[in-house]
Design a binder for these strands. Structure first.
Length: 586
RNA sequence: GCCCCCAUAGCUCAACGGAUAGAGCGUAGCCCUCCGAAGGCUGAGAUGCAGGUUCGAUUCCUGCUGGGGGCACCA
């Protein structure tokens, strides 16, 4: 990649200078891409940084660096200059740009991938919905982030396994099963009757009984005791409610599978809290002997205060492992299944403080696992009217949201002819809906809350997934027409005298691999979104300003067609990294 | 009360400590006899407050204000 070459050159230049000037570190020296193309394809603040350390004028340092850079510049660089306050700007040569363009076309689906993480084993845990509870936009968010991170790591050559961790035991389950028992009794219905219902209806039923149980738990002391007792029974596996439990869990899981299918996620590993509880409890007992944990009021707690965190209960006074202990049991279990170099856990940020405690405990119990583990948290999904809550029923169900957007996509397609069959239209509507939802979630930097307004923020135009899909489809349409007319992709020839729209697009496209690498390194899906958005905008400006197939000259036509082909690749590959499909037509 | 996160245009979001703070929506207009108008073009419009560090601060530090999350047997 061009950037790596430049960084090396730049460091050489600085080193050569620092022999004369004394010690200067590389810490603050950056090589970035300027927003304004007049400032080159790459730019560095090296002279400014060095100037303050050597007490010289920035431009003077700049000239010194420039002398070295000009002497050693690779042929990918046409020109180097000192500008502004002392920035050093690099301009790529036409040959280098032509080469990159050709690469972007030739590499096809591989464009944007690298081998920098080849051989690295990565496990990514995400989505983590709980059986018996609703799959809402929060889960959709976690899924979009986790799937995107997985794909970004894969694009760096890593071997990635996706894991899903689901709470099939615990109070929420007890509440739902208790609610189930009650509701069946009240309505004198049998479980067998319920099984005749459709899957969504059964899942809806589960949502209702959970709400019922949760409400009773808070309002009715007797019910609360019953639920706690039921929780323990479910945990031990032996209960008269076993059938209700098993059925409910199965319905939930089947339903989740349906959603993963739509979202394009396949989990290699599926874990349940019920599977890791015992193991976690043993680890806690072991830790108790090592004085890592303490007994307190009949429970086993981790004294987080000693480490600047807060203390938390790992095994409750009933002797049951809490979520914290289960998480402790999960880590080694994952490692046995897949000896990872890196374990990424994606969750909402409401559990960050709690995760710090768990990871601290893990550090003391199994430091080698802790070192390989990273917790990535994303912001909360909030409605304009306030926060989501499954207890109050103020949630946006994941599938309802997809259906709503899909409906809007159908309306738009109904207005344009397009010549698509009914089935094709349905497929496209699905792709657009998933694309719109995923993009709207991924475009925001992780850690920030998302104000989710289904009316406004989930747009099918402007800064949206469908805009990218539309632009990609437009590119493909031109390529199809070229193919029909017997025009094939040539090698880039004369690219002198480019119009500004052509030049801007050309100088944007080759950055794609760098952007992907950065996004993977920084766990930043939104960086990919931003880049694709800019690229699509540049393409559309270019498209409106210059005819491709009807270009004035054949050479120009061939060159523009390459721009179209490269844009098509970058957009489709980028969308794929986001976990979004790009339709051929829409 | 303590801890963590956040604050940029009317709204939703960008901007490795750098050059004129970028987009989308909305708003005022313009562009389909030309490869796809889910599109393009032109306007108006923003860094919560007060200090500090720095050649340079939306970015780093401190305080304040406002919002969100968490703080022992839920996850």
């Amino acid at each position: 990649m061009i950037r790596q070459e430049l960084v090396k050159l730049l460091h050489d230049a600085v080193r050569q200078l620092s022999v004369e000037e004394g010690k200067v570190g590389f810490g603050d020296i950056a090589l970035e891409r300027p927003e304004n193309l007049e400032h080159g394809d790459y730019s560095t603040n090296a002279a400014l940084v060095l100037a303050s350390k050597t007490k010289k004028a920035p431009r003077e340092v700049g000239e010194l660096l420039l002398a070295f850079l000009e002497k050693h510049k690779p042929k990918t660089i046409e020109r180097v200059e000192v500008a502004g306050a002392g920035f050093i700007n690099f301009f790529l040569s036409k040959e280098a740009l032509a080469e990159e363009l050709e690469l972007a076309v030739k590499e096809g689906e591989k464009y944007g991938t690298s081998k920098s993480s080849k051989g690295k084993k990565v496990m990514v845990e995400f989505t983590d919905p709980n059986p018996f509870k609703e799959f809402h936009v929060g889960h959709l968010y976690s899924n979009a982030v986790g799937e995107c991170l997985s794909r970004l790591m894969e694009a760096q050559g890593a071997e990635v396994k996706r894991a899903n961790y689901q709470g099939d035991v615990g109070m929420h389950v007890a509440k739902a099963v208790w609610g189930m028992e009650r509701k069946l009794a009240e309505e004198a219905t049998k479980l067998q009757e319920l099984e005749k219902l459709s899957l969504p209806e059964r899942v809806h039923f589960l949502g209702q009984v959970y709400a019922k149980g949760a409400a009773a738990f808070e309002q009715d002391k007797g019910a609360a005791e019953e639920i706690a007792e039921l929780n323990k029974k479910i945990f031990e596996g032996a209960t008269e409610a076993a059938e209700l439990y098993e059925k409910g869990k199965a319905w939930s899981l089947e339903y989740f599978e349906r959603i993963y299918e739509r979202l394009g996620t396949r989990f290699e590993f599926s874990y349940f809290e019920s599977e890791v509880g015992e193991r976690g409890k043993k680890l806690v007992e072991e830790g108790l002997r090592k004085n890592i944990f303490q007994k307190s009021e009949g429970a086993v707690v981790f004294p987080g205060e000693e480490y600047g965190l807060h203390s938390r209960v790992f095994v409750n006074s009933q002797g049951l492992p809490t979520y914290e202990a289960k998480e402790l049991g999960l880590a080694p279990r994952k490692y046995e299944d897949f000896p990872y170099d890196l374990s990424i856990i994606v969750t909402g940020k409401e559990v960050v403080d709690y995760f710090k405690v768990v990871l601290k405990a893990l550090e003391l119990l199994a430091p080698e696992l802790r070192k390989k583990t990273v917790h990535i948290s994303h912001g909360m999904v909030r409605l304009p009217s306030g926060k989501l809550s499954s207890r109050t029923g103020k949630v946006v169900a994941g599938e309802e949201l997809l259906e709503e957007i899909k409906g809007r996509a159908r309306e738009i397609m109904a207005q344009s002819e397009g010549g698509l069959s009914l089935q094709e239209k349905e497929d496209v509507a699905e792709m657009v809906a998933v694309g719109a939802v995923k993009y709207s979630l991924l475009r925001i930097a992780l850690g920030k809350d998302i104000i989710f307004d289904t009316e406004k923020s989930l747009s099918l135009e402007g800064d949206s997934g469908p805009y990218l899909q539309y632009t990609a489809a437009r590119c493909k349409s031109i390529l199809r027409k070229a193919n029909e007319q017997g025009i094939s992709l040539a090698k880039p020839r004369d690219i002198l005298g480019l119009a500004k729209e052509e030049s801007a697009l050309l100088r944007m496209l080759y950055r794609f691999p760098e952007v992907v690498e950065d996004a993977a390194e920084n766990f930043a899906p939104h960086a990919v979104c931003g880049f694709l958005m800019e690229t699509a905008q540049l393409f559309n400006s270019f498209y409106h300003a210059h005819p491709v197939l009807k270009a004035e000259r054949e050479e120009l036509r061939d060159f523009r067609l390459l721009l179209v082909a490269a844009t098509a690749n970058v957009l489709s590959n980028g969308l794929r990294l986001l976990g979004v499909k790009a339709p051929e037509r829409m």
